[in-house]
Computed example of a mutant assay.
Amino acid sequence: MSNSQMILVAGPYRSGTGDDPAKLAANMRAMNETALTLFRAGHLPVTGEALALPLLEVAGSARIGDRVYDEIFHPIAEQLLSRCDAVLRIGGPSEGADRMVAQARAEGKAVYAGLAEVPPA
């Protein structure tokens, strides 16, 4: 029997970036690199950003923090987390990532503070 988990990778996206596209991309890359490590370990990693960002584009979001962004960005991550087994919190300060951790705890899901805490698949 597999112990593979669907794990939401939660880390800073906007925090500390001033919405600088290069810094946003670096934060996204950090989450994606972590997700790749989880995938190669036999888990199913997901990020809210991977679902939200394409939807924001087609929904016509003009800038981070606009009405369309607020409609989609965090709500999709919250819905996604409800389907996950766990959260892996990475990176530095992030209100959104901390909200994901709080939601996971409230829903009785596992919360990992680093890759080393994630059990083998």
Rank of each mutant, 00 (worst) to 15 (best):
P12W: 07
G91Q: 15
P75A: 00
A22Y: 04
L81M: 04
H74F: 15
D66S: 00
D85R: 02
R99F: 08
G96P: 04
A50D: 10
L36G: 06
A30I: 12
A10T: 03
A25L: 13
N32D: 13
R14V: 03
E117I: 07
R83N: 07
L53N: 10
V9Q: 06
A41N: 15
V68H: 02
A30K: 15
Q5S: 02
A41K: 14
G96K: 00
T47N: 12
Q5E: 15
E107D: 11
R89G: 13
A86D: 04
A41G: 07
A86W: 09
A116V: 00
H74Y: 14
A86E: 01
P93L: 09
A52V: 10
G16M: 08
S82C: 14
N27T: 14
V111D: 06
Y69H: 12
N27L: 11
R63T: 13
R63E: 15
Q79M: 11
N32S: 09
E78A: 14
I7S: 02
A35V: 13
A10C: 07
P120C: 05
M1G: 11
D20V: 13
Q79H: 09
P93G: 13
L51R: 11
L36I: 12
V118Y: 02
F39V: 02
V68N: 04
I64G: 06
I64V: 09
Q103A: 07
I64S: 04
V68A: 01
D19A: 12
V101R: 05
Y69Q: 04
P12G: 13
P120K: 10
E107V: 02
R83G: 08
H74L: 13
P12M: 10
A97F: 05
T34N: 05
A106Y: 01
I76N: 03
T17P: 01
R83T: 15
T34P: 03
S2W: 11
L55S: 07
A113N: 12
L81V: 10
V101C: 02
L24W: 02
S94G: 07
K23Y: 12
R29F: 03
L38I: 04
L88Q: 04
I72A: 09
V101D: 01
L55M: 14
E71Q: 10
D70F: 09
V46T: 06
K23W: 05
E95S: 15
L115T: 03
A62W: 00
D66Y: 05
P119C: 10
A26C: 06
E33K: 03
L80I: 00
V68K: 00
T34L: 02
M6H: 14
P75T: 03
C84D: 07
A52L: 14
V9N: 03
H74M: 12
L44G: 08
R67I: 07
R40F: 01
T37C: 04
P93W: 12
T34M: 06
T17Q: 00
